[in-house]
Design a protein around this nucleic acid. Structure first.
Lengths: 139, 139
DNA sequence: GCCAAATGATCAGCCGGCTTACTAAATCGG
DNA sequence: CCGATTTAGTAAGCCGGCTGATCATTTGGC
């Protein structure tokens, strides 16, 4: 396996970590995708298109994720009076509360690696150079 | 984004790289999942359960991936006379040929990172410590 | 030898990526 | 001012993860 392409190692590592998250979040009626949205809404409500761009995901994907968050009562959608095409998404108190309860998880969960800063730097390199024309990088 | 949890960076980087693979493989009527299976079959035919374990994936996932490879004519399934529960999967000549044409892709496609060996080492760390009871690690 | 347990494969159904195609609303050009 | 273009959101449908359930076969204990 140590000879496998880096892209494949990346995919496998990602799925394994996400699976651990899934187990930890199940008791909160939350998924990994939902948690990302709750995180992005911490500061202020936002439109779905903006959320999609910030999460590096297509609009359709965000739409369904928000459907599920809404079903659980963690966010609400309401019309933007200034632009009736847009639907602003906002965390409910329950959504804010459940997100707070996820804060400790990463530390417990993420496995030990020899050089964590190097890993994070490499991942940011990849994201920076690959998300070129797909999402306007503003972060 | 540089403050985001490492698990999330891993997921985004993985999707971006996989998307680039997807584009490169589309003209070969092949997907990333299919390519992995063709790789695993390079040496010898194998059973589906073994392929699933080697790819760090559940049996059901492999089953559908092989369905599609079979539909494209890249592999064939045949019964194992020694154990009639098993179905041995084998690459066809077309499958071997199309896999050869993917060999050059990784080099063209994978983005530049500052410290590639550190990235690979970290990913192998994660895979090693996370795939504990999920797959018997033999590789 | 026979019945229980383990194993290999599949079906059904969920989630979360994606594309293509559509509607409604806002914006822009002439 | 009005038609064309752009933008926000959604529906439909595919792929690839996953779980839980089912069926056939093999293995193992008694």
């Amino acid at each position: 396996m140590s000879q496998w392409p880096t892209g494949r190692l990346l995919g496998i590592a990602s799925r394994l970590v996400e699976h651990a998250w899934f187990d930890a979040l199940a008791e909160l009626d939350l998924t990994h995708a939902g948690m990302i949205v709750l995180h992005l809404l911490a500061e202020a409500p936002d439109s779905q298109a903006s959320l999609a761009s910030r999460a590096r995901v297509e609009a359709q994907t965000i739409s369904r994720t928000i459907d599920r968050l809404e079903r659980e009562g963690y966010v609400v959608r309401h019309e933007d009076p200034a632009d009736r095409r847009r639907r602003l998404v906002e965390r409910t108190p329950r959504g804010a509360e459940v997100f707070e309860r996820t804060r400790h998880i990463e530390a417990d969960l993420f496995p030990e690696v020899a050089d964590l800063p190097a890993l994070r730097a490499a991942l940011l390199d990849i994201i920076g150079s690959s998300s070129g024309d797909r999402w306007t990088t503003e972060d």
